[in-house]
C-alpha cells in the first residue's frame, strides 16, 4: 500500500500533469487556482483575471509599466563591497550572491531608473523580490541614496517601489545601518521640496518598512500586498494565537491609517501621475503681465498693502515699486 501511494501514484500523476501544463504556457493563480494563459496574464500586468490577485513582478516589468511608452534609462549604481562580513551559514553568502546575480542578471536587489510619466520627469527605484527576497544590504542602500541624489539633481519626484523581506542578514549590522542611511536619502528629496511617494507592493516587511518605506509623503499600496514590521510567524509565536483575517494586508493597513490608498495595479500609473501632477503644478502657469508703474505708485501711496497680502503672491513687500 505504501509503495503504491508513495511511489506509483505520484509517478502516474506526474506523467499526466506534464501533459496538462506544457512549457509554462499556463500558470495557476496561487489564490483562486484558476488556470491563466501566460499571454493574458502578462497583458493584465500579472493580475489574475478571475480573482484580482496581484502576483509579484520584476523591476523591469515595473519600470515598463510606469514610464511613458515603457521607455526609461536605468542608472549604474556605485559598487558596494561584496560580502563585507565573509558571512557563511550552510552556504557562503558570496555564493548566494553570485547565484542571485546570475538568476536575475542584476548586481543586486534594486533597479533605479529615470524617465517620464505623462511627460513629467520622475525617478523610480524598484526592488527585485527575486533577488534574495529583495533584502536590503549595502548595495540596496546605495541604490536608494543614488536614486535620491538623482531626483534632487533632476528636480524630479522620487517614487520607490519596495518588495522586500527586510534587512539582509548576511550583511549583519551593516544592513541594519542601511535603515538610517535610506532615511537620510529620502530626507534629501523632501528637503529639496520634491514629492517622495512609496508604492508598497507584496511583500514589504521588516527593516525596509521600518525605514524609508513608511516615510513617504503619500503611501500607495497594491491590492492585497503584505505590509508589516514583524513576520506573521514571529507574531504567532509571541502571542500564541492565530492572526486575524487579512492581517498585514494593504487594506488592513489603510484601515489602520498607515497607507493613503489601495489601488489595482492597472490604475497605479494613472494614480501616480495624477498625484505628482497635483503636487508639482499647484497653480496654473500665470501669464506674466507688466504692471503699469504709475498705478502701483498710486496704490502704494493710498493704502500701503499689508506685508502678508504682498508676500502671499510671492512678490516683494509693499512700497518697493514706489521707491524705485
Amino acid at each position: 500500500m505504501n509503495w503504491l501511494t508513495n511511489f506509483v501514484r505520484p509517478k502516474i500523476r506526474a506523467l499526466y500533469a506534464k501533459k496538462d501544463v506544457p512549457d509554462n504556457l499556463w500558470l495557476k493563480c496561487p489564490n483562486c487556482e484558476a488556470m491563466l494563459f501566460h499571454r493574458d496574464l502578462e497583458e493584465n500586468l500579472r493580475v489574475c483575471q478571475h480573482c484580482g490577485f496581484h502576483m509579484r513582478i520584476d523591476p523591469v516589468r515595473r519600470m515598463q509599466m510606469l514610464f511613458d511608452g515603457g521607455e526609461y534609462q536605468t542608472i549604474e549604481l556605485p559598487k558596494a563591497p561584496p560580502d563585507p562580513l565573509r558571512f557563511r551559514d550552510q552556504k557562503r553568502y558570496a555564493d548566494r550572491l553570485k547565484e542571485a546575480q546570475s538568476k536575475t542578471g542584476r548586481p543586486d536587489a534594486i533597479l533605479v531608473a529615470h524617465g517620464r510619466m505623462d511627460g513629467m520627469p520622475v525617478v523610480v527605484a524598484a526592488f527585485d523580490f527575486g533577488f534574495m527576497g529583495g533584502s536590503m544590504g549595502i548595495a540596496v542602500g546605495e541604490g536608494l541614496v543614488a536614486a535620491a541624489r538623482l531626483a534632487v539633481l533632476q528636480d524630479a519626484p522620487l517614487v520607490v517601489v519596495p518588495a522586500s523581506g527586510g534587512a539582509r542578514m548576511q550583511e549583519g549590522i551593516l544592513s541594519l545601518m542601511q535603515m538610517p542611511r535610506t532615511v537620510i536619502a529620502v530626507e534629501m528629496v523632501k528637503e529639496a521640496g520634491l514629492p517622495y511617494v512609496v508604492v508598497l507592493t507584496d511583500p514589504t516587511t521588516g527593516g525596509v518598512t521600518a525605514s524609508f518605506a513608511m516615510l513617504g509623503d503619500v503611501h500607495i499600496a497594491e491590492r492585497g500586498a503584505q505590509i508589516g514590521f514583524a513576520g506573521a510567524r514571529v507574531i504567532e509565536d509571541t502571542i500564541r494565537e492565530t492572526l486575524p483575517e487579512g492581517f498585514q494586508r494593504a487594506e488592513y493597513l489603510m484601515e489602520h491609517g498607515m497607507v493613503d490608498m489601495v489601488v489595482h495595479r492597472k490604475d497605479l500609473r494613472r494614480t501616480l501621475s495624477k498625484l505628482l501632477d497635483l503636487l508639482r503644478r499647484p497653480a496654473p502657469v500665470a501669464e506674466v503681465v507688466a504692471m503699469p508703474i504709475a498705478v502701483a505708485e498710486v496704490e502704494a501711496e493710498a493704502v500701503p498693502p499689508p506685508a502678508a497680502a504682498a508676500s502671499k503672491d510671492g512678490r516683494e513687500p509693499a512700497g518697493e515699486p514706489a521707491e524705485r
Binding site: A230, V234, I235, F247, Q248
Partner: peptide, 13 residues
C-alpha cells in the same frame, strides 16, 4: 521591538 498584533495595528514600522 515588540512583535504583536497591536504593534502592527498601530504602525510599529
Amino acid at each position: 521591538a515588540y512583535p504583536g498584533v497591536a504593534s502592527e495595528e498601530r504602525g510599529q514600522a
